[in-house]
């Protein structure tokens, strides 16, 4: 494939050369005149002496040409890496945030259900017994909460309520 590409490239170069639109004047006089014109201007010009500073500047400029290009590459690479890291970080932050929010929401729902259940435990116990389903999230929470937390902390209240009901009967 690479060989094919280089052959295509060769054809393209041949095409470009074959279709070269630049036509130089073939006339020798034309170039004699151009030469005269240039030399007339050159006669008025002077070779400028080079100061020590100019030489140093040129030397430094040549010396820094390749390191400058390398530095540019490094900077570009650094920017790309930083952008990538920031992107990954933001994505991670977003995921964590949504996870925390959903946990908070679940806690909130759980506590509000528990609150309701505490108000009328008998009714909620029946409700759970009747409607509990494997896919029912809130029912799961309720059954768990009622069997553990509620039975321990609110046991006294439930007993009291039962007593009142028995007396009234």
């Amino acid at each position: 494939m690479k060989k094919t590409d280089s052959m295509k490239e060769m054809i393209l170069i041949k095409k470009l050369r074959a279709e070269d639109p630049i036509e130089l004047p073939m006339d020798e006089d034309f170039f004699d005149n151009l030469h005269k014109k240039i030399m007339l201007s050159v006669d008025k010009a002077e070779v400028k002496p080079v100061s020590k500073w100019t030489k140093t500047w040129v030397f430094l400029e040549q010396k820094t040409l390749i390191p400058r290009a390398k530095a540019k590459k490094v900077v570009r690479l650094g920017i790309k890496a930083t952008t990538l890291a920031a992107g990954v970080g933001l994505l991670n932050f977003g995921l964590n945030l949504s996870k925390e929010l959903s946990l908070m929401q679940a806690d909130l729902n759980k506590s509000s259900i528990l609150l309701e259940a505490k108000k009328n435990p008998a009714q909620w116990t029946d409700l759970v017994a009747n409607y509990q389903d494997e896919n029912d999230f809130y029912a799961d929470i309720l059954s768990e909460a009622l069997s553990q937390e509620l039975s321990q902390s609110e046991l006294a209240t439930i007993v009291e309520i039962d007593k009142v009901i028995a007396q009234s009967l």
């Binding site: 151009l34 240039i38 201007s41 050159v42 010009a45 070779v47 400028k48 040129v58």
Partner: peptide
């Protein structure tokens, strides 16, 4: 072309 030759002449020491 003319300008380039003049510049090169002036800067020949560089």
């Amino acid at each position: 072309v003319q300008e380039a030759f003049i510049k090169s002449y002036e800067k020949l020491n560089l």
